[in-house]
Amino acid sequence: MKQLALFVSISFTLSAFAFNQPTIPLNWTTQYACAVDVPSRILANVVTTQYTDNMPASCIQRCDAAGFSYAGVEYSNECHCGTGLVGTPASAPVSDCNMTCTGDPTLSCGGSWRIQIYKSPALPPGWWGLQGCYLDTPDSPTFGSPIAHHTIDTNLDPINQCVPYCAHIGYPWFGVENGTDCQCSFGLAPGAQLRSQDECTSICPPPPGEGNENCGGFQRMLAYRFRPF
């Protein structure tokens, strides 16, 4: 009978940590399955908010929408948004992140001074270099598998909208076309055709009071590539 009681006790302890795997949206990745947090916080420029529906996916979505590149869940209801890490966090056993999420009790949301950390695909600090003017047609595209992003804010030119958009989602190439269009990609398409710079002279819609800037042309794309500092 004592052996049976011991088996039941052990089984209950193990099952207490048998949480489901969380959904990680927006191409974010798990940076630390469980890490030690400290009173000064291990996320840089951290903003901490308590939510009754807290879970990894909702915390990531909130941090991403606010422009942060790191997210963490802790103490069940805490969502931490930050711009980076302060030093190298100390890893903790996954079993230390044993508190259920307020938004889904089948998921873990850290523990007491234990945090689960997630990172966005956003590019690190760097610069964008012009690669040239390219033909961009259905039969001869500039980019391989581009993500199209049509600009809508008339107070910003396409380049000033395209750079942060592509950088935030982790794409190291962007292009502007026909004065108003922005595309993001991981690289040039096979056989991409470089054309004369004179073919990319459509003027970007400039913000009030600013000068003119070229934004490609009809079926002509000015392509830029990211380089880290």
Results as ranks from 00 to 15, higher is better:
27 N>F: 02
168 H>E: 04
22 P>Y: 10
143 F>Y: 14
46 V>W: 00
5 A>S: 09
174 F>D: 01
81 C>S: 05
212 N>W: 11
57 A>K: 06
100 T>F: 03
109 C>G: 10
179 G>A: 05
48 T>P: 00
153 D>I: 08
200 C>S: 08
35 A>P: 07
41 R>S: 11
38 V>Y: 15
140 S>T: 12
61 Q>F: 01
45 N>L: 03
143 F>H: 12
196 S>N: 11
131 Q>F: 04
10 I>P: 01
222 L>N: 15
19 F>T: 10
190 P>S: 14
107 L>G: 12
23 T>F: 13
160 N>C: 13
64 D>F: 08
199 E>L: 10
162 C>H: 12
109 C>K: 08
89 P>G: 02
146 P>S: 13
113 W>G: 00
224 Y>A: 05
189 A>F: 11
130 L>N: 14
43 L>Y: 04
167 A>D: 11
107 L>D: 07
203 I>D: 09
114 R>G: 06
93 P>E: 01
15 S>F: 14
82 G>E: 04
87 G>Y: 07
62 R>T: 13
97 C>E: 11
182 C>G: 10
24 I>N: 09
151 T>I: 12
50 Q>S: 14
110 G>L: 10
4 L>T: 11
166 C>P: 09
54 N>W: 04
94 V>M: 03
80 H>K: 08
139 D>W: 06
27 N>D: 15
119 K>I: 04
191 G>W: 09
74 E>V: 01
14 L>Q: 08
107 L>I: 09
120 S>I: 07
66 A>Q: 13
199 E>A: 07
164 P>R: 08
151 T>K: 06
173 W>P: 00
51 Y>A: 02
102 T>R: 11
160 N>H: 14
117 I>P: 04
19 F>L: 11
131 Q>H: 04
211 G>K: 09
142 T>N: 05
118 Y>N: 03
54 N>C: 07
37 D>K: 12
17 F>G: 12
67 G>Q: 00
34 C>I: 05
41 R>C: 04
226 F>I: 02
16 A>P: 07
138 P>D: 08
191 G>Y: 09
129 G>N: 15
46 V>L: 02
116 Q>L: 04
188 L>N: 09
22 P>N: 11
90 A>G: 04
91 S>G: 11
146 P>M: 12
161 Q>F: 05
36 V>S: 08
202 S>G: 00
196 S>H: 05
106 T>R: 13
95 S>Y: 00
98 N>F: 03
98 N>E: 05
25 P>H: 09
47 V>F: 07
134 Y>V: 08
42 I>G: 03
182 C>Q: 07
155 N>H: 11
119 K>V: 05
85 L>C: 03
75 Y>E: 01
52 T>H: 06
177 E>W: 01
71 A>M: 03
143 F>P: 15
117 I>H: 03
